[in-house]
Design a protein around this nucleic acid. Structure first.
Length: 585
RNA sequence: GCCCCCGUAGCUCAGUUGGAUAGAGCGCACCCCUCCUAAGGGUGAGGUCACACGUUCGAAUCGUGUCGGGGGCACCA
């Protein structure tokens, strides 16, 4: 609807440009919804915006523009108002026409082809496979999934990807943690390192190892602990201690056995994460392994390319990337003194690989605590001759859980965090998905567990789902009375929908496509949440004020068509959010 | 110290990319009701958009500064 008005204005503008009334360089005319119904349905400010360049009064310019507007049956009346606004009043038919559109297009109503089939990659969650996902990851998961679905809805070809950090020191710590717990199950007595993973899931993996392989991986504690540096509780450095312990584990187990423990731990945890996300309605096109990046030589290639371009230098045995030349605040290490490349080095290779795979646009969803990484990754892309604008980094703030008004204390270090799985179990997938994306991503999220669980109109998820179920209920009753609820029947009676509640609902239906478009292009799922809540509210108000299944058959049929359209939009909107649209509650 | 995000009604938050009289839910006040579906419904009060200056026809929105809250500044991943 909005786009159609925009096209009319564009046409009028180009005619004025031909006449030399305004400069040839035309701005995209901004069409917006009128906030006040007295101002019509849509307003355009282009006359004011162009007044200066055209050296004309805004209102006079607006008059000329209106004279050049092509006639259109949608538009009933056009007026000039205020300092030079052009207000468009639409015909009622334009709104009534939405109903057959919604019913014919069904699940595709509100979708568009604006993205033009461009390829866009969305990488999200990408949590280290060192433990189960917690509620912080949940927000990134919900947010990334909805952004991806929204982009698909507006015509992009979307590739959802999870970057698996299956290499590096944290994974070694994980493997070692599992092995130490296994040794304890073999009745070895040993101190558990301060820096090892302590969660119960470590015990579970160790138990599997013990159950399936007996004592094949057992080693005497004396050998294990001989000549190790002191751990933190003994006044030592926990980092040095764990690194020495990892080296000792590799030595005593040998490559094959160490590898086996490592793989077991990785696979168990990764399977858990996959399963967890799938149950959360989050699915990926690809799980991209960091290790393959190293093994394929992509990391070395990236470093060599930087070297060839003269963007790295050596200093005291380490290799530095001169990121300050590309706007970063300090240079960054890519190869450490011990010859190992840094995490940042694989990140460079990974992002290079993303662009080489031919995506027109690449989106990273990160936790806000990683914001410091944005300049260096963009610097690397620039250094390698890419346009850093092709990468969009979306930072998601933390989520705090509240129970009975009290903040739930969480700490990853101590292992006392709430997992995504627990949250799902407590409030359900629908409420979790909805609550996570209800706020702008850069806004801290206060997640009210009690509200998410409550079956009342205060709970926005329940409220919206209930509107859908309520439509279903009315349709069931109509069917019982033998009234046709077929989408095609009775469309000719729609002009009978003249009640204020009905025009309000039609107005909301007309906004749906715009909301989806805006939410997609701005990566703002919360817009859709607010829209659905408003739509549900209008429907409930309508329900309270009017009977749908009335004696007058023509009016009754028209109303059934209207609520069928409302049902379709609620369903489409909830579907984009990954929330179910129940038939009854 | 430097960097990022936030500051809008008592509370939780929107605000269509700079538009016309700043909105919603909860809470509060008053009124009504027990009727297709079970959450009752309706009306109303409530604001120096943190503060100051600037940019222009026009600022909650853009710029600079100040104050307040959160987060980040590794040869960790």
């Amino acid at each position: 609807m909005k786009n159609q008005i925009g096209q009319l204005v564009s046409q009028a503008l180009s005619r004025l440009a031909e006449q030399g009334v305004i400069p040839a360089q035309l701005p995209e005319p901004a069409i917006e919804r009128a906030r006040d119904s007295r101002h019509g349905d849509f307003a355009c400010n282009v006359a004011m915006a162009l007044a200066k360049a055209a050296r004309a009064r805004p209102r006079e310019l607006a008059e000329k523009l209106i004279a050049e507007l092509p006639p259109n049956r949608l538009v009933e009346r056009v007026e000039i108002a205020g300092p030079g606004f052009i207000n468009f009043h639409l015909a009622q038919d334009a709104y009534h026409a939405l109903i057959p559109q919604a019913l014919e297009q069904g699940a595709r109503f509100g979708h568009s082809a604006l993205g033009g089939g461009k390829r866009i990659q969305v990488e999200f969650v990408s949590a280290n496979p060192t433990g189960p996902l917690h509620v912080g990851h949940g927000r990134g998961a919900a947010y990334g999934a909805v952004v991806a679905d929204l982009l698909e809805a507006v015509g992009f070809q979307v590739h959802r990807e999870y970057y698996v950090n299956d290499a590096g020191r944290q994974m070694d710590i994980l493997a070692t943690s599992v092995w130490l717990r296994y040794l304890e199950l073999c009745d070895e007595t040993l101190p558990f390192p301060a820096n090892a993973y302590k969660g119960d899931y470590i015990w579970d993996i160790a138990a599997t190892l013990h159950r399936e392989h007996g004592e094949l991986y057992r080693v005497a504690t004396v050998e294990l602990l001989a000549d190790l540096p002191a751990d933190e509780p003994e006044g030592g450095d926990k980092e040095l201690y764990i690194d020495a312990l990892i080296a000792r584990s590799k030595l005593l187990l040998g490559d094959n056995r160490y590898r086996f423990v490592f793989e077991l731990a990785l696979n168990v945890i990764l399977d858990d994460i996959r399963d967890d996300l799938a149950l959360f309605g989050v699915n990926y096109e690809e799980w991209y392994s960091e290790r393959t990046l190293t093994e394929s030589g992509a990391v070395t290639r990236a470093i060599e390319k930087l070297r060839a371009l003269g963007h790295v230098y050596e200093q005291a045995g380490t290799l530095w990337f001169r990121s300050t030349a590309f706007g970063d605040e300090k240079d960054r290490v890519v190869v450490r003194e011990n010859g190992q490349h840094t995490y940042f080095a694989s990140d460079i290779a990974y992002h290079m690989d993303k662009l080489e795979r031919g995506f027109d646009r690449v989106i990273d969803v990160w936790g806000a605590d990683h914001h410091g990484y944005v300049p260096r990754v963009k610097a690397a892309l620039s250094a390698l001759g890419n346009d850093p604008e092709r990468l969009d980094v979306l930072l998601v703030q933390f989520a705090n859980l509240y129970r009975s008004g009290e903040k739930v204390q969480m700490s990853t270090r101590s292992g006392s965090f709430v997992t995504l799985r627990e949250l799902r179990k407590e409030v359900g997938r629908d409420a979790a998905r909805f609550f996570y994306v209800m706020r702008k991503c850069e806004q801290h999220l206060d997640f009210d567990l009690d509200l998410a669980k409550s079956q009342s109109s205060d709970n926005p998820v329940y409220y919206v789902q209930y509107a859908h179920a309520r439509v279903c209920s009315v349709l069931r009753q109509a069917a019982e009375k033998g009234v046709s609820v077929e989408p095609s029947a009775g469309v000719e009676n729609l002009q009978l929908l003249t009640e204020a509640h009905e025009t309000a609902l039609l107005g909301s239906l007309s906004r749906f496509a715009e909301v989806v478009e805006l939410a997609a292009f701005n990566r703002e799922p919360h817009q859709l949440c607010h829209y659905l809540r408003d739509l549900a509210n209008e429907f409930h108000t309508y329900y309270n004020a009017h009977q749908f299944l009335v004696e007058d058959e023509r009016l009754r049929d028209a109303r059934i068509k209207l609520i069928l359209a409302v049902q379709q939009v609620l369903r489409n909107g909830l579907n984009l959010l990954g929330v179910s649209a129940p038939e009854r509650m």
